[in-house]
Design a protein around this nucleic acid. Structure first.
Lengths: 190, 190
DNA sequence: CCACGTTTGTCAGTCGCTGCCATGCCCTCG
DNA sequence: CGAGGGCATGGCAGCGACTGACAAACGTGG
């Protein structure tokens, strides 16, 4: 029950922070300003977020588990690559749903420290997704595929998502993100 | 002619820094210590390297151009994916040549800030390699493939290299890196 | 030998982030 | 009801990476 309050505070902070970041830029905004905007001491901010970047990205870790759940729902005989493609649709949806997603994505794509933070998040997603893909490989007969294949597949898939997202922001969201992800995945399948 | 001296100083600093980093860890080593070891003020260090991480990774940017050159040498009718695989062999060689490469790779894989710096470097490599892959796609008939396909291919290929390198360090270099890269590339081709 | 540009050191400062300690809050138990 | 134990918060001092500004030392060319 206390976790509820904590989550609510986190969400509130993240919202106010995003507001500031979008208004005057991520790097140009200090944590003190965020603290002031939220009515909190700077010290306490870091009791809710480990990093300034986490105020933007923090909520996306749980999305990784959503992807894993979606992956689990795909038919067992589907090959891992297309299964991953379909599972990642939940990310596509979460980005496309509100037009604020585009502005946020653009900030993520253009700010250096945020880009690297995103890549870190991808590493966590990778750790979440790899076991599921391994199971999938085992079930479909691959005898000696080992962990390496699973890691390569997940990493490549996330790269495709990333590339598609960047292209999406560059096009100002004109082309639907789903198509871009499809193209990226198709290009790698060769 | 002055650039020669500058490059020599950079190399000297990087060498002494690596020595310290390997001895007592990257994060546990302050720039002041590196400065002292090299007989320089901390301020001047940052006139040779933008970042502490650059002292480890800095030299690898040029390697991206080597990869591009190797890519250019591949037969024009080779499909992009295998062409990239062969071009990346220059990275494999540069990592495998001395056993210091393994220790460095292990440090790169385990230190958080260095991992993200590596991913940044991959982004630069991506920018270098994408034009060449684009040309390759155009030449081989792909009419409307556009930039997206090239970016996806390069990004996925670098992911595979990264995954293979991590697996290589985890195995203490027991299995040859080349084979691991082959497996990663094969896994994605599906 | 003197002017000039480059390189270097020093100092002070910013910013993200952390540890420590004190304060105030609520909740429970006696 | 009042005392005690968590728990969230604030303030402060500090670290470490990094930067700007200024001045001193250096080498080179006139």
């Amino acid at each position: 029950m206390r976790d509820v309050a904590r989550r609510a505070v986190r969400a509130e902070i993240a919202a106010k922070a995003m507001q500031l970041f979008l208004a005057q830029g991520f790097e140009a905004t200090t944590v003190k300003q965020v603290a002031a905007a939220v009515g909190m001491s700077g010290r306490s901010l870091f009791r809710y977020f480990d990093t300034k970047e986490d105020m933007v990205i923090g909520g996306l870790v749980e999305l990784g588990h959503d992807v894993a759940a979606a992956l689990e729902l795909r038919p067992a005989d589907e090959d891992p690559w297309t299964a991953l493609r379909h599972a990642l649709e939940v990310c596509v949806d979460s980005l496309e749903e509100d037009e604020l997603g585009l502005r946020r994505a653009k900030m993520l794509a253009t700010t250096a420290s945020l880009r690297t933070a995103m890549l870190d998040k991808h590493l966590r997603w990778q750790q979440i997704l790899v076991p599921h893909v391994e199971k999938r490989l085992r079930d479909s007969g691959q005898p000696q595929a080992e962990a390496l294949a699973a890691r390569a597949l997940v990493s490549a898939a996330l790269s495709c998502l990333d590339v598609a997202a960047v292209a999406w922001t560059e096009a100002e969201g004109a082309r639907p993100l789903t198509n871009l992800v499809d193209q990226a995945f198709a290009a790698v399948r060769s």
